[in-house]
Computed example of a mutant assay.
Amino acid sequence: MATDRDFVEYVTEQVGLGDRLTSKKMFGEYALYLDGKVVAFACDNSLFIKPSAAATAIAPRLPQRPPYPGAKDYPVADELLDDTDALRLLITDTAALMPLPKPPKPRKTTGSRVRATPAV
């Protein structure tokens, strides 16, 4: 089941970090980014936090399950959706532990494709 956009909007409102928390749709589900770092996934209208020491320290009793078939277990933070302060702390502390995204590889240029005009 794909995640509803309304669910993602609710999560971003609850976290309360404004434009710092963004989302990107992927295969019917969403990745959530804080300052460009992936911190969580919204799958099947549930919030899956990237596994990290932050999740273990802040919310060690969160249930865990895979966000999609074949994935490892992730903490599911649905029970924190109504606790703005705890959810914000979990998201920001998770982001602090995540590496910066790798810069995109530059595109290879293959020269110009200008048509040669016949000599007259």
Rank of each mutant, 00 (worst) to 15 (best):
1 M>W: 14
2 A>Q: 12
3 T>L: 08
3 T>K: 05
7 F>K: 03
10 Y>F: 15
11 V>D: 03
11 V>Y: 05
12 T>C: 15
12 T>K: 13
14 Q>H: 05
20 R>M: 08
20 R>V: 04
21 L>T: 09
23 S>M: 07
23 S>L: 02
25 K>W: 01
27 F>G: 07
27 F>L: 14
28 G>T: 07
30 Y>K: 00
31 A>G: 13
31 A>H: 07
34 L>H: 04
34 L>E: 03
34 L>C: 08
36 G>P: 09
37 K>G: 04
37 K>C: 10
38 V>H: 02
40 A>S: 13
40 A>F: 10
40 A>V: 08
43 C>R: 00
45 N>P: 06
47 L>G: 03
48 F>P: 01
48 F>R: 00
49 I>T: 01
50 K>R: 13
51 P>E: 08
52 S>M: 08
52 S>N: 06
54 A>C: 12
54 A>G: 07
55 A>E: 04
56 T>P: 01
57 A>T: 10
57 A>R: 11
59 A>E: 09
60 P>L: 09
61 R>Y: 09
63 P>W: 00
64 Q>L: 04
65 R>A: 12
66 P>F: 02
67 P>T: 02
68 Y>T: 05
69 P>G: 00
69 P>K: 12
70 G>Y: 09
73 D>F: 08
74 Y>E: 02
74 Y>W: 15
76 V>L: 13
77 A>P: 06
77 A>S: 02
79 E>M: 08
79 E>N: 04
81 L>I: 12
85 D>E: 15
86 A>N: 08
88 R>P: 12
89 L>M: 04
89 L>R: 05
89 L>F: 00
90 L>F: 09
93 D>M: 14
94 T>C: 07
95 A>I: 04
95 A>Q: 01
96 A>V: 04
97 L>Q: 15
99 P>L: 05
99 P>S: 04
99 P>T: 07
102 K>E: 15
102 K>T: 14
103 P>Q: 02
104 P>F: 02
105 K>T: 10
109 T>S: 14
111 G>I: 11
111 G>H: 07
111 G>R: 02
111 G>C: 11
113 R>K: 14
114 V>Q: 03
115 R>G: 03
